[in-house]
Amino acid sequence: MFEARLVQSSILKKVLEAIKDLLNEATFDCSDSGIQLQAMDNSHVSLVSMNLRSDGFDKYRCDRNISMGMNLGSMTKILKCAANEDVVTMKAQDNADTVTFVFESPNQEKVSDYEMKLMNLDQEHLGIPETEYACVVRLPAGEFARICRDLSQFGESVVISCTKEGVKFSSAGDIGSANIKLAQTSNVDKEELAVTVEMQEPVTLTFASRYLNSFTKATSLSNVVQLSMSPDVPLVVEYRIGEIGHIRYYLAPKIED
């Protein structure tokens, strides 16, 4: 039997919002340590890796590991039926072919349950090695979303250059070129407004802007986004999910031909 109860259904709604652009379906791998998801987008250029720890749930029970193949479009429709302040419970019998979502209003006066068919997805998992990144940038998630959106008007690629002074985002195309430089902030009082750069060595990499924009759908999950870069390895864009977990997007850098 698998049962996971979350007081804030808004977390699950935001997680779906964050992945449904990139993925049509994904497998939720549930074990006693929590729920994990790893899937590449259809073009196999980017990857989503999500982890929700069991201790972040109000109630979590997973008698036997269970992998639930979810159609994310259907799951989004079901989660739209939950109010933000509803309590959501996901549950499934062992080797079940359906999963049930239960939404309870705060005053328990309204309880809804939605049963969804599961899919058999034989998605392969990629091994992602532990990596020491040359540059790790932390900046306000809203700022990053704004930069990706603004620069995607200029070209289909964004060049991210990181030095110890700060990070520069550039794009060029038919209408012209654009550069946005963020200096490393000095003593800001609010952590979530800071721009920090941990640099082992300077890095300059080029990425497809449409994927970066898809990643920023996770902005509502966290005030801060973390970009990890090294020469010739995929970028990692990470958003924390409250105290319960994280969502990480991986994107292969473009190479000059």
Partner: peptide, 14 residues
């Protein structure tokens, strides 16, 4: 212009 590699060029399926 530049080429867009796949993730499998960097990470191995397991």
């Amino acid at each position: 212009n530049n080429l867009q590699p796949f993730l499998k060029d960097f990470y191995v399926p397991h």
